[in-house]
């Protein structure tokens, strides 16, 4: 065929998938706790590591982590990054600090943003606390913890948190 039509280079093929997402039982307990300014973890039994957020089972052993445990909303920065990359999905103004916070009483790091802190002052070992949404805006969403912020407590030596960093 000699008189072929012009070729298109590309076309746009939009995809839209609408899921009805179930948070699952373990996360449901955690999310309901947030509405009361409580951070809940779970463990397989007394003396066992506390998983925050709860995962239903201990990921190491698959053993049922059935015991809900409240942990503190204070914790220690075990590592962090300063984010300067824009993204449509991110609700924070650039630059901002993201940090893994080891909450007192927990045995897993909790990843969130850190605010009210100069960028050059953020450091591993610094003590922070959750800043909660106003009472009438507490919902079953991690954003009920708006962010973490520094508190006036001495830094935790790195040796004490190294295993979480």
């Amino acid at each position: 065929m000699s008189d072929l039509p012009n070729a298109l280079k590309s076309i746009v093929t939009p995809v839209r998938l609408e899921y009805d997402h179930s948070a699952g039982a373990a996360a449901t307990g955690f999310l309901r706790g947030l509405t009361q300014k409580k951070i809940l973890g779970a463990r397989t039994g007394p003396g066992e590591p506390v998983l925050v957020p709860p995962r239903g089972a201990d990921p190491r052993t698959s053993e049922l982590a059935a015991e809900l445990v409240e942990v503190s909303d204070k914790g220690t920065v075990v590592t962090y990054s300063i984010v300067r990359v824009p993204s449509d999905n991110i609700p924070f103004e650039l630059p901002y600090v993201c940090a893994t916070v080891l909450l007192d009483g927990a045995n897993l790091g909790f990843f969130h943003v850190l605010q009210n802190c100069a960028l050059d002052e953020v450091r591993i070992g610094m003590r922070v606390q959750a800043h909660w949404a106003p009472d009438d805006q507490l919902t079953e969403n991690v954003s009920s913890i708006r962010y973490f912020e520094p508190i006036d407590e001495p830094d935790v030596p790195f040796e004490q948190i190294e295993e979480y960093a």
């Binding site: 997402h21 948070a23 996360a27 999310l31 075990v78 590592t79 962090y80 990054s81 984010v83 990359v85 993204s87 999905n89 991110i90 609700p91 993201c98 940090a99 893994t100 990843f111 969130h112 943003v113 591993i124 079953e140 969403n141 991690v142 954003s143 790195f158 190294e162 960093a165």
Partner: peptide
């Protein structure tokens, strides 16, 4: 960086996830 309901996207992309691990490595 598609975050499911009830959660907050804290960082975007792989770099956001791996940067804190690198910070840990530098410290250690």
């Amino acid at each position: 960086t598609v975050s499911p309901p009830f959660s907050v996207a804290v960082v975007a992309g792989a770099g956001g996830f791996f940067a804190p691990l690198i910070r840990s490595y530098i410290q250690r």
